[in-house]
Simulated assay, not measured.
Amino acid sequence: MNERIWIMGASEGIGAALAQAWAQRGAKLILSARSEDKLADLATTLGGAEIVPCDVADRDSLGRAAETIRAGGPLDRAVTLAALYDPGKVMEIDADRAAQIVTVNLTGSFNFARSAVPLLKTGGQLALTGSVAGYIGLPQGQIYSATKAGVTNLAETMRAELAPDVDIRLISPGFVDTRLTQKNDFDMPAIIQPEEAARAIVSGLDRGGFEVHFPRRLTLSLKLMQMLPYALSLRLTRRLVR
């Protein structure tokens, strides 16, 4: 394989599992997140990887990271999985925390995209991570769901603007057992492990198309709900309010 791949949000969860999956295929990995210690531990587990700590919410931090990465040559792929999440109702979430979630999830995706695209070889791949939570407004999704809907829109816009010079992709996971989803106090349908999510991402990004969504037993039902007129879809989501 021998691809050069930058993974943002690689310190744990899906990002760490994705790094392991690509490392097994012989990729040359650049691992980024805010936590240098966790990145170092992961690099050791992988048998070696380039560590470039940075923060998607800090444009200067990303700029310095990009210059470091540029020195090593062009990238084949860049993917960001960095995100914040707190469950709860819109009227109950702390406003400052909500602003932080917007900054990391939505503005952070924008910042990463602007830093990564110039580093890609012609035809290289940029993948942004949305969520099935962004398909339709669901109870207790609060500002997180709104940010993921924004990431989806951003990826669609960039696909229209940059293809075919850049292969823009959207990753839309369902429930994955990570530190973030462990905050939920409700039953999560079709929940999967990070390793399964990583396999789905690797396989999906290798294929053509735009969106990689999984697990399909959940995503297809939500896509169907998304297609319904509001008179029906809002009635269904209202029933989910506890």
Rank of each mutant, 00 (worst) to 15 (best):
I14R: 02
G130M: 05
Y85I: 12
D76R: 01
R238C: 04
A99W: 01
E67W: 00
V79Q: 02
G47A: 06
T147E: 03
A16G: 07
P194S: 12
T237V: 15
L18T: 07
T178W: 05
I93Y: 00
R70D: 09
R25A: 15
S11Y: 02
Y144C: 09
G124T: 06
A10V: 08
F214D: 09
A33V: 09
D58C: 09
F210V: 00
M227A: 15
V212E: 01
M1V: 14
R70V: 05
L138H: 06
R114T: 13
A17W: 03
A17H: 08
D177S: 14
T45S: 10
I201W: 04
N2S: 15
I191G: 01
D167A: 02
E156A: 04
R97D: 07
V56Q: 07
A40Q: 10
D37T: 14
E196Y: 05
Y144F: 13
G209W: 03
N105R: 07
V166L: 07
G48V: 12
L119S: 08
D185R: 14
L138F: 08
G9M: 06
A16L: 05
F175N: 13
A66C: 13
K121I: 08
Y230V: 13
R242V: 10
D55W: 06
S115N: 11
D37R: 13
V241M: 10
P229D: 12
A23K: 14
L84A: 11
R179A: 15
R207D: 07
A49T: 11
I201V: 11
T237G: 09
G88E: 07
A163H: 08
L218H: 09
D86M: 08
L106T: 03
T219Y: 04
F110V: 15
V166W: 02
L75I: 12
L62N: 11
I51S: 09
P173Q: 11
D86K: 11
A231M: 10
A149N: 04
D41Y: 00
E12M: 02
E3W: 00
Q142E: 13
G123M: 03
L220M: 12
D58G: 06
V79P: 02
I201Q: 04
T45Q: 10
Q20M: 10
F175Y: 15
A231K: 13
A95Y: 04
I69H: 00
K148S: 12
R207E: 09
I192R: 07
I93V: 13
T80P: 00
R77M: 12
K89L: 12
A17E: 10
Y85P: 08
T107S: 05
V176R: 05
L236C: 06
C54Q: 13
L84S: 10
R216K: 15
V166S: 03
R4N: 08
Q182E: 09
L39Y: 04
Q125S: 12
L81F: 13
T129K: 01
D206G: 15
N153Q: 11
S172A: 13
L232K: 07
R159Y: 01
G13L: 08
T44K: 11
A197Y: 07
Q226E: 13
D94T: 08
Q182M: 04
L29W: 00
L126V: 00
G208F: 03
A133F: 04
A146Q: 04
G48S: 12
R238H: 11
R216A: 14
L120A: 06
A19T: 08
L220C: 04
E195Y: 00
A19Q: 04
I5A: 03
P139S: 12
D96W: 03
S203A: 15
Q24H: 10
I192P: 07
R34A: 03
G26Q: 08
A146I: 11
S221P: 00
E211H: 01
